[in-house]
């Protein structure tokens, strides 16, 4: 168990270091002089030099990298060029909204996928199965930046059930959550179906049937429970899609989270904030995945012995 944790920990640290390095290098991809790009054409040479000094861009690359990493470790992400506030404060103000949206999206996805996938597996090749798979195909094919506006058109503008945009109570969360969760629910429903079909062929299900257990007990206690682990893993991996989708969903619904902050900062050429946003979302994704991985290893000994 210990060696499993240790090996996972080391590879995660390598990945985190790599992610930080890629994000650090992003600013050097700005075409031409990044400082000129950030301050615009009207900046004086003194201003340019001052910003170069603040961002450490006049130092050798390795020194800059080292300063970036040590700064991160102390929770220092620098200052926003636009609002002059410490970036860490801006992130902390915006992150809860993204977390709320992502959680709600995940909730919608599970709420749709679990019953849909289960029914499809239990009634394989029936009309339920076919409808569920058609839903799944449509769900993965519909872009969220089209689904969102269409939902707004129908449910906000025509029917008036939900607010058009903004974050204001539970009602305002419904449409963004559906927009974000639909694609994931489609992928997840397929996964639930496939895993459940596999599990239902196992010997212990036959044993449970032979014991005379009710079908509902077999499905809930034996089949779904064993199917939940692989489903969890897929869920962890798909969280990246969810977080990436959150950026677009936030723009559609003017949801004041990290995604909106990213796009705003790109438009303002506030690159340090862009870097920080990308870093925050990517690191959350890495950490959640590591956590799922470890829990999986803890719950299922087969996983940790195979490492």
């Amino acid at each position: 168990m210990f060696s499993f944790f240790l090996s996972r920990l080391i590879s995660v640290l390598v990945v985190i270091l790599g992610v930080i390095t890629v994000v650090f290098l992003l600013i050097h991809l700005v075409p031409g002089d990044p400082v000129q790009a950030m301050l615009g054409e009207t900046a004086t040479p003194t201003d340019l030099e001052a910003l170069r000094e603040t961002l450490g861009l006049n130092q050798p690359l390795m020194t800059q990298w080292w300063l970036y990493i040590t700064g991160l470790l102390q929770g220092d992400l620098g200052q926003s060029l636009y609002s002059k506030e410490p970036i860490i404060d801006i992130l902390m103000a915006r992150f809860p909204a993204t977390l709320e949206l992502a959680t709600a999206g995940l909730f919608v996805a599970i709420l749709i996928a679990l019953p849909l996938g289960s029914i499809a597996a239990l009634r394989k090749d029936s009309i339920y199965d076919n409808s569920a798979m058609i839903f799944s195909l449509l769900g993965v094919s519909i872009p969220n930046f089209w689904l969102g506006p269409m939902l707004i058109l129908l449910f906000s503008l025509i029917l008036g059930w939900f607010p058009v945009s903004g974050q204001d109570g539970l009602l305002s969360l419904v449409l963004p959550a559906i927009t974000l969760g639909t694609a994931l629910s489609a992928i997840l429903a397929r996964m639930v179906r496939a895993t459940l079909l596999e599990v239902l062929n196992e010997d212990y299900i036959r044993t449970a049937r032979a014991k005379g257990l009710r079908e509902s007990a077999i499905v809930i206690h034996h089949a779904l429970r064993n199917a939940s682990l692989p489903i969890m893993t897929v869920l962890g991996l798909q969280l990246g899609t969810l977080l990436g989708g959150a950026v677009i969903t936030e723009i559609i619904f003017a949801w004041p989270g990290i995604g909106q902050l990213t796009i705003e900062s790109i438009q303002r050429r506030d690159y340090p904030v862009v870097q920080a946003c990308i870093l925050l979302i990517s690191l959350s994704y890495v950490l959640v995945n590591t956590f799922t991985d470890l829990v999986y290893g803890w719950l299922d000994p087969r996983v940790r012995y195979s490492v």
């Binding site: 590879s11 390598v14 990945v15 985190i16 790599g18 992610v19 390095t21 890629v22 994000v23 992003l26 600013i27 991809l29 700005v30 075409p31 969280l239 990246g240 899609t241 969810l242 977080l243 990436g244 989708g245 950026v247 677009i248 990213t262 796009i263 790109i266 690159y271 862009v274 870097q275 990308i278 979302i281 990517s282 994704y285 890495v286």
Partner: peptide, 24 residues
């Protein structure tokens, strides 16, 4: 494999958003 892991650590479209945002 490590390099691939690092690229896979960026959620979906996010890296593309950052890159095209910064490249213009």
């Amino acid at each position: 494999v490590r390099i691939m892991d690092i690229f896979l650590a960026f959620p979906g479209i996010l890296l593309a958003i950052a890159l095209s945002g910064i490249l213009g």
